[in-house]
């Protein structure tokens, strides 16, 4: 791709020399039209290896009519600028359980330089300032470019053998899979960093690698230092549930004696603690021996639930036990369930 610049010095003299001038202008026009046709807009800048040509052209009226002369041509090659950025694709901390293996963090590596460039990738799980380190980190390249890690589809990265080569402005999604140690406790965070470095070279901006640029020029380290890094974080979010059961007896004589015919109201308080949530939380309780369940007495947070398991509400009684489906309950909340039996 050559970009031509030509200065045209045109003498205008109305009369006999006109046809020749027209010819010269037409020539200049056609050349510039060609240059416009070869335009490619690029955020990363002019593509490495492009020659910028500058030739001045003069046309004027001399003693024997119009003359066209060319100046010297100045040729300047555009060097490769080595630049890269890395960004975490994870919107925030990734919830993880202690002991979980092959947990995924996601990054995007973008070639912000102006030439085709390969990048060396490194995972760093031993960052300081966090609470624990993940282990057994491996890097995968998002082969199907869907932004989601697919086991068996995406390619395991091996430094030096399949370093991703990116065109100017092109990006690739990268995954790091690592294991959360069993010793990690609720609320602890771990930093996982991806580092990408231009294979041609990196360092102080302005550092030049003679002749190593894409397109035959030099390679010059750009403002990013030709390396980039970004971090994602794991956050251990555990939750536990504690059940406390209590009973209140009211006898048929207005007292609180546990005599046959007396009503026992059982209260179950489920307290969920931790920074995570419990999903699909179900509470069940057997009806004690020598008692009979009083139909339609299940309540959740003071609201009555039906005994039927076929309806939409959370409660049910199957003849031997009551059950309440609480669904997902975040840490820090409680759920209170009551039901009644009579003593046989």
């Amino acid at each position: 791709m050559n970009y031509a610049s030509e200065a045209t010095l045109i003498g205008f003299k109305r009369s006999k020399s006109r046809p020749a001038i027209r010819g010269a202008m037409a020539l200049a026009m056609s050349i510039s039209a060609l240059a416009i046709g070869s335009t490619t807009a690029h955020a990363a800048g002019t593509i490495a290896g492009t020659d910028i040509l500058n030739t001045a052209q003069a046309s004027y009226d001399g003693p024997s009519g119009p003359v066209v002369i060319d100046s010297n041509t100045v040729t300047i090659k555009v060097d490769e600028l080595l630049d890269v950025t890395v960004a975490s694709s994870d919107p925030g901390d990734i919830a993880a359980d202690s002991g979980a293996t092959q947990q995924v963090t996601t990054y995007q590596v973008t070639n912000t330089g102006n030439g085709n460039e390969a990048f060396t990738l490194t995972a760093d799980t031993a960052k300081g300032g966090d609470d624990f380190d993940t282990s057994n980190a491996v890097i995968y390249i998002d082969t199907d470019d869907n932004g989601v890690f697919d086991a068996g589809v995406d390619t395991l990265y091996s430094p030096g053998s399949n370093d991703p080569v990116l065109a100017p402005d092109a990006s690739v999604n990268i995954f790091i899979l690592s294991d959360v140690p069993a010793a990690a406790t609720d609320g602890q965070r771990a930093e996982v960093e991806l580092l990408a470095v231009a294979v041609t070279g990196s360092g102080t901006p302005g550092t030049s690698f003679a002749g190593q640029g894409d397109g035959g020029g030099d390679a010059v380290v750009g403002s990013t230092g030709a390396d980039g890094e970004a971090s994602s974080f794991f956050l251990i979010q555990a939750a536990q549930v504690a059940l406390v059961k209590s009973a209140t007896v009211i006898d048929q004589f207005g007292g609180s004696q546990a005599v046959p015919g007396a009503t026992i109201t059982y209260q179950l308080v489920a307290t969920i603690t931790g920074s995570g949530s419990l999903t699909n939380l179900n509470i069940t309780d057997d009806i004690p021996a020598d008692t009979t369940y009083t139909a339609e007495t299940i309540t959740l947070e003071g609201t009555g639930l039906t005994d039927s398991d076929a309806d939409a509400d959370a409660g049910s009684f199957d003849g031997s036990e009551i059950a309440v489906s609480l669904g997902t309950v975040p840490g820090g909340q409680t759920r209170t369930i009551t039901f009644q039996v009579t003593i046989d």
């Binding site: 200065a7 010095l9 045109i10 800048g45 001045a56 003693p63 300047i76 555009v78 102006n114 020029g217």
Partner: peptide, 30 residues
Amino acid sequence: TVIPGDNLVFVVKYKNVGSTPATDFSVTNP
């Protein structure tokens, strides 16, 4: 060689080295 972002200065020098004036002219640089 240059890199994207470099500032360039273009200089076009002209001189009438002949024996007659060059009349009514202009310089164009695409």
